[in-house]
């Protein structure tokens, strides 16, 4: 009974569970997809899960540092997307495809 009552009393842990689920979906998506653009989107999902955890801790501790950390994650995500998509465009020019299986020049 207390478990059911605790389930509907939204606490910090609820947000952590959602963050964990979202991170896992992103990680599995990164592993199973072959389109590099969709792989980048899965990385964004993982970064978002971390952002959710940062904000949840920020609320739990009443500390502005967690929300400040979200800004740094955002900046890193923006830089990653800019450079990553430039790499994808450069690869597409040479190979006419963005599938990760095609990019195997380093394979022995």
């Amino acid at each position: 009974m207390t478990l059911v009552a605790g389930l509907f009393d939204i606490s910090t842990q609820h947000y952590f569970v959602v963050g964990a689920l979202l991170f896992t979906i992103g990680a599995v998506g990164l592993l199973v997809r072959k389109n590099t653009i969709v792989m980048f989107m899965c990385v964004e999902l993982m970064l978002n899960a971390v952002n959710l955890t940062f904000v949840a801790f920020s609320k739990a501790l009443d500390d502005a540092a967690g929300q400040a950390a979200v800004f740094f994650t955002l900046i890193v995500a923006a830089a990653e997307v800019a450079v990553g998509l430039a790499i994808i465009v450069a690869i597409f020019r040479r190979r006419q495809g963005v599938t990760a299986d095609d990019i195997d020049l380093l394979k022995g």
Binding site: L74, A82, L85
Partner: peptide, 22 residues
Amino acid sequence: QDAPLVAIVQIVVYASAIVVLF
């Protein structure tokens, strides 16, 4: 979770800029 500024920045940067770039 009492983070309105982060919520706005999330929409402006992520949902607008990054996804439009994609």
